[in-house]
Simulated scan of single mutants.
Amino acid sequence: MPDLPAAAAHPAPADPIVDVRGLGRSFTVSEGPFLRRTRRTVHAVADVGFTVPRGAIVGYLGPNGAGKSTTMKMLTGILSPSSGTVRVAGLEPARQRTRLAARIGVVFGQRTTLWWDLPLRDSLALTRHLYHVPATDHARRLAELTELLELGPFLRTPVRQLSLGQRMRGDLTAALLHDPELLVLDEPTIGLDVVSKSTIREFLLKLNAERGTTILLTTHDLGDVERLCRRVMVIDHGRLAFDGDIAALRDSAPAPRTLVVDLAAPTAPITVAGARCVAVEGPRQWLELDANPAAVIAAVAAEHEVADLTLREPDIEEVVADLYRRPAGERGRITA
């Protein structure tokens, strides 16, 4: 994958690109039989606060109905907050939506901003006019993105004939043609095959590293999180349940670490302080750790001839699922 030009890198002022304080959004819903309907207030987002520094890649996770899409809609100006404040790139999204659109790019994985019956190239040309991008800048950026995302073979193909992976690359290009400071992605790899996912993930990493573009994404694909995100926030029942890095998220889970020990020869189950043997297969043994891994490894090495050691962290999917399952009283915000 070729490099992006250094001159295109975004500056990084000290102020955060996203600043959310006490953010809330409520909806009124009607329930019950037609003649006896009652009205109920639903708090989709309640007292959420966080900042995102420029140049970061942040994952915003949560189960269906947790409030993540509502939060994204408030950040992009589609919805107005019921309470609290939100500023993105120094602007109030709902009040300054047109100005904000020139500063951010948005991609919704299940929806497209491209014109269905037009060739991809024509859709991208119309996008240029929407954002008032000068023709020379458009041509340069389109050439760069065409090479980086390998759009060349299907630029003349009508959007309706593109595969899901090709359309997603087209949507990413449309969102980036005006060189936004912030890229907001909602399920960017949903439904994609392994190759397409890898292409998009590597592109996003390069975009962030070489241009300094801030990326905020929601996803159910925890492979996206582990490959892309330096920080994750987990929202559940409208409130932040976690805000920190991947290591801190794993540390918040009750699931123990596992030490896989390959011995020089089969032996009885290993017995050392701070660990318990949970499986034996020939010379390989699995130890669940209750203590510092370094202490356990030292104890094992002192008593046995070891060929290899592997420390396995709790699976990130299990960790996030555990956060969702916790009782309401334990869903308070956890920070790294």
Rank of each mutant, 00 (worst) to 15 (best):
residue 18 V to G: 01
residue 241 A to Q: 12
residue 82 S to N: 02
residue 154 F to S: 10
residue 179 D to W: 13
residue 198 S to H: 14
residue 128 R to S: 02
residue 304 H to F: 10
residue 319 V to A: 06
residue 22 G to M: 05
residue 161 Q to P: 01
residue 181 E to A: 15
residue 210 E to K: 12
residue 190 I to Y: 07
residue 222 L to S: 02
residue 223 G to Y: 03
residue 265 A to T: 12
residue 254 P to T: 12
residue 225 V to C: 07
residue 290 D to N: 05
residue 225 V to S: 06
residue 74 M to L: 14
residue 257 R to F: 05
residue 122 D to Y: 00
residue 184 V to Y: 07
residue 9 A to N: 05
residue 239 R to G: 12
residue 113 T to M: 09
residue 94 A to F: 15
residue 248 A to W: 02
residue 158 P to Q: 08
residue 258 T to R: 10
residue 306 V to R: 11
residue 259 L to Q: 08
residue 236 D to W: 01
residue 192 L to E: 11
residue 245 D to K: 11
residue 307 A to P: 01
residue 47 D to A: 14
residue 30 S to D: 04
residue 142 L to F: 11
residue 76 T to S: 06
residue 167 R to S: 13
residue 270 I to M: 05
residue 71 T to N: 09
residue 81 P to R: 07
residue 319 V to F: 05
residue 183 L to F: 13
residue 124 L to H: 00
residue 285 Q to E: 04
residue 276 R to L: 03
residue 266 P to H: 09
residue 271 T to D: 15
residue 119 P to W: 00
residue 321 A to H: 02
residue 162 L to S: 11
residue 25 R to F: 13
residue 53 P to D: 09
residue 230 R to V: 05
residue 169 R to H: 12
residue 50 F to Q: 07
residue 187 E to L: 14
residue 94 A to D: 14
residue 285 Q to Y: 03
residue 103 R to C: 06
residue 280 V to Q: 11
